[in-house]
Amino acid sequence: MKVLDACDLHPGIGIKVLVQKSLIKVDSDGDFEMHDLIEEMAHYIVRGEHTKSPEKHSRILKKEDLAYLCDLGADAPPMETEVLRYGYLDLDLSHVVANMKKLRWIRLFDYGASSFPSNFQPKELGYLELQFSRQKELWHGYKSLPNLKILDLSSSANLIKTPDFEGLPCLERLILEGCWSLEEIHPSIGYHKRLVLVDVRYCSVLKRFPPIIQMQMLETLILSDCHELQQFPDIQSNMSTQFENS
């Protein structure tokens, strides 16, 4: 099999060509049987003709690109970014992401302590994962993210309170597992009509879960190892929900 160097690949190359050249294997679910060359090729395709302008990339996957964007600061131009993903991070992106109006997917670990600014309003954002975040508060006050379906803040040990959920009408899964400093869950959660799963296990200082008023879609509420929880949540609506509490 001929192995192509990433620099030889044209940005417009298709998946079918890669399969024909035996560079990737597609199974019945459409997954790729990704190695290092394929990953590098993916980065090359994403960069396209703007290899030195990460602000024009649809996906930001490398630390050097994130560092470049941080250097631009709050004066950075509007960006084309749709996907922001990186592992453990020692950069503060709070002001950078405010210029990413097209974001659909964020997955970052060890995010900095700064809350997201008021102009962070990616209307298309559907997935927000900030595991091991150092933030005390995700953002201040009300924020409208009408397409957000998954919010994962697990192991965010500094998080003290959750955001207002009224601006997240499509939220389906809320994961707060291991938020050991969490003291307050915003009362708007009890009126949320789309939540299916809420996981607050190991929130060891949480004393109260808000009354459940209109959570008709809720299927699973996990409260295990919340040792300071003073009472089981007050349920004021008819629902068939699986609870886990210990």
Rank of each mutant, 00 (worst) to 15 (best):
P78T: 06
D90Y: 05
D75Y: 05
E82N: 10
D75C: 07
E80W: 06
L93N: 02
L66A: 05
A98V: 00
Y68N: 10
V96F: 04
R104P: 02
M79L: 09
Q131C: 11
L130C: 09
A98N: 04
A98S: 15
H95T: 13
A113K: 15
R107Q: 14
A98Q: 09
L145K: 11
W139H: 04
K136Q: 14
A76Q: 08
L66I: 07
C70S: 07
N147V: 00
G73K: 10
F132Y: 14
N147D: 07
W105S: 13
D110K: 14
L148S: 02
F120D: 05
Y68R: 11
R85L: 05
D65F: 04
V96Y: 05
K149C: 10
L145M: 10
L93E: 01
P117W: 03
P122S: 02
A67Y: 09
A113I: 07
L148D: 05
F132S: 12
M79A: 12
G126F: 06
R104T: 02
L61D: 06
C70W: 05
S118W: 06
Y111I: 06
N147P: 02
N147Y: 03
L148P: 08
E137Q: 15
A98I: 01
D110G: 15
Y127N: 13
N147K: 14
W105N: 14
Y86W: 10
F120E: 03
F120G: 07
K101D: 10
E129S: 13
E82Q: 15
L89W: 04
V97T: 00
D90C: 11
R134N: 15
N119Y: 06
E64L: 09
